[in-house]
């Protein structure tokens, strides 16, 4: 049983630059609870029943429009240990900055050969990799001339339900990054930097695709419930 405070450096729930937080943030502080079996256990998504799908750059047998890229990295916990078997669910807009989603009405073309979703699992080393298309920036209604920087959404399921993380990966050098209220809601520059992928030729493939590295650090596993005498 350990107290596991909310990680430092995360964005406040009330982030005035991001208008949608105004009526959705809780006004009471969350109540800290000790980790119990409920928080230290997590669902298992075995690749047999939840097949991996690592290539977003081909859909229905056709190559997607846009700049093909390879994105990969490792999933680690706070102690630097690989989170083996972590499930990554990934979604993004197409090269023109439009999601294959009925509510996205941005006047940019849909690509019939791009669905924009992937699911992969971290290996024993915590490593994972996808092939995709560099997503486009797109406008949103938050403020005048607001455009989201290029980004890829990531959802991670680790070894404990308390490790659950949904976040976004950004691209280095994007001129929209300093202007984005979602990214900049994270108060700490070093913490923001964790969400910016590194251009990485090690992930590139000759005459095929450039590469980016994106490592993800989940919260620690917390205490095992063993010390309470309820080994499971």
């Amino acid at each position: 049983m350990t107290e596991c405070p909310r990680p430092q450096g995360w964005a406040p729930m009330d982030s005035p630059g991001y208008g949608s937080t105004a009526r959705r943030h809780a006004t009471h502080a969350p109540i800290a609870i000790p980790h119990t079996l409920t928080e230290t256990s997590a669902p298992r998504f075995l690749p047999g029943a939840y097949p991996a799908s690592a290539d977003m750059s081909v859909h229905g047998g056709h190559a997607s429009m846009g700049e093909r890229i390879i994105v990969g990295g490792r999933v680690l916990d706070e102690d630097g240990r690989p989170v083996r078997g972590a499930m990554l669910e990934i979604w993004q807009a197409n090269a023109a900055g439009r999601y294959h989603h009925i509510r996205d009405q941005h006047d940019a073309p849909l690509d019939p050969h791009f669905a924009g979703t992937a699911r992969v699992f971290a290996d024993d080393d915590g490593s994972w990799q996808i092939t995709t298309i560099r997503p486009g920036a797109y406008p949103w209604g938050n403020h005048p001339k607001a455009w989201r920087p290029m980004h890829i959404h990531f959802g991670l399921m680790g070894h404990g339900f308390a490790q659950r993380l949904v976040t976004q990966m950004y691209f280095p050098g994007d001129p929209l990054l300093p202007l984005d209220p979602v990214f900049n809601a994270i108060p700490d520059a070093a913490a923001r930097e964790l969400l910016v992928a590194k251009f990485d030729l090690d992930h590139a493939v000759e005459n095929w695709a450039l590469g980016y590295r994106f490592d993800i650090v989940l919260r620690g596993r917390g205490a095992t419930p063993m010390e309470d005498g309820h080994a499971h």
Partner: peptide, 14 residues
Amino acid sequence: HTSPSQTAGPYWHL
């Protein structure tokens, strides 16, 4: 440091 969370946004239904 842990990777910070970001909103799931309106298009997570994908």
